[in-house]
Simulated assay, not measured.
Amino acid sequence: MAGNDMQALVLDHVSHSFGGVLAVDDLSLSLSKGEVVCLLGPSGCGKTTALRVAAGLEALQQGRVIIANEPVAGAGREIPPEDRSVGLVFQDYALFPHLTVAGNVAFGLRGLSGSEKQARVQEALGRVGMAESAAAYPHMLSGGQQQRVALARALAPQPQVMLLDEPFSNLDARLRQKVRDETLHVLKESGTTTLMVTHDPEEAMFMADRIALMRAGRIVQEGTPAALYYQPVDAFVASFFGEINQLEGVVVTEQVSTPFGPVDAKGFADGAAVAVLIRPEALHLSPPEQSANGSIPVNGGAVEVMASRLMGRTSLIHLRSLDVPEQETHFHARVPGRFLPMENQRLRVELDRSQAFVFLRETD
């Protein structure tokens, strides 16, 4: 973490309750200047509450909020949202229908002359590619254009910190990809420190320099997208970032057996009941190298295809194990590009052990 002189936003041991229900539980998070950080997690995990506390839209109950090294909430101090130097973009954009695009962007600008205000509005609209729509009204714009205007309005006062709450969730899938790409480039080019809330792990990985994954009001794991994907601290983190093949096993001499060969289980006691989580892309498929008697060698594993589906950029293969026929579990393998083996075709499977994770089995 960067030193204090570089921290644009700090949430320091923040807790927040609603009617006795703890929504945010001792949350600490620090953002360096120019960094994009995503608060990620399922609905009800407290991520939006944490963002609203940072913005001043929820009065701080416990902890501290510091923006650009200045305490804005805590120890009896509560600076109102409009004086915190934060830009806000919500999922409904909250544009004023009776104001033009330029009027919406100019609304939050204070202490500027008319010409300075006009120049700032044009600069902000230019950043998001909406300069030619300055005279239009919100109802004349598409959802993507409205989102860009909301971003321009938040950027115009040149805030220390940008706070985005599910800003792309109202857009359809294709437009969402385009607008979030544009938004990321605008934020990076302007050097704006950004805290964004999302429930979508792919969106978080696309947008974030760093992700803080939340569960039940607490940060479970924090780090780069690669760190959370390849080094998850528990089964919740591993499974949150996409589909997982899950097996159960018992540790024997620091290994657990799977249909795809043994998996390392260092640090677990002999006899420990564990879950083995394997990402679909960790299963590498190839034609069987048959021996003289027609059997498939055991280095790797033998599988039979149940179904194949092209998913666009990847193919998803449904498999059953031939090495452990008594296990009814079926597995998914994800292969880049077009790979559509026939049903009942036998294949050899090898496991990329860097994408197989072992955790103690959770009990109900």
Rank of each mutant, 00 (worst) to 15 (best):
G271E: 02
S239Y: 00
E254I: 04
D264W: 04
F240R: 09
F240N: 12
D270E: 13
F240A: 12
I244K: 00
E248H: 08
V251I: 09
F241K: 14
Q246H: 02
A272L: 04
V252W: 02
I244F: 04
G261R: 13
G242Y: 01
A265P: 13
A238L: 07
L247I: 02
P259H: 05
A269H: 08
V250R: 15
S239Q: 09
V250M: 12
D270T: 15
A272E: 03
N245V: 09
G261N: 10
L247Y: 03
D270G: 15
E254F: 00
E254Y: 01
A238Y: 05
D264A: 15
T258K: 14
V250W: 00
G271P: 11
A265D: 05
T253C: 11
V263F: 09
N245G: 05
F240D: 03
V274N: 04
A272G: 07
P262A: 15
Q246E: 05
E248L: 05
E243F: 05
G242S: 06
F268D: 06
G267H: 06
V250S: 06
I244A: 09
A238I: 06
D270V: 13
A272D: 05
Q255C: 03
V263K: 14
V263W: 07
G267C: 09
V274Q: 07
Q255L: 08
I244P: 01
Q246V: 13
N245F: 04
E254A: 15
F260S: 07
E243N: 03
T253L: 10
I244H: 02
L247N: 02
K266D: 06
E254T: 09
E243G: 01
V250I: 15
D270L: 11
F241Q: 11
E254W: 00
A238F: 06
G261M: 10
P259Y: 04
E248V: 07
G271C: 12
V251Q: 07
G271Q: 09
P259E: 01
A265I: 09
A273Y: 03
F260E: 05
P259T: 06
V274D: 01
V252P: 02
G267E: 00
A273C: 09
G242F: 00
V274E: 01
E243I: 03
Q246T: 11
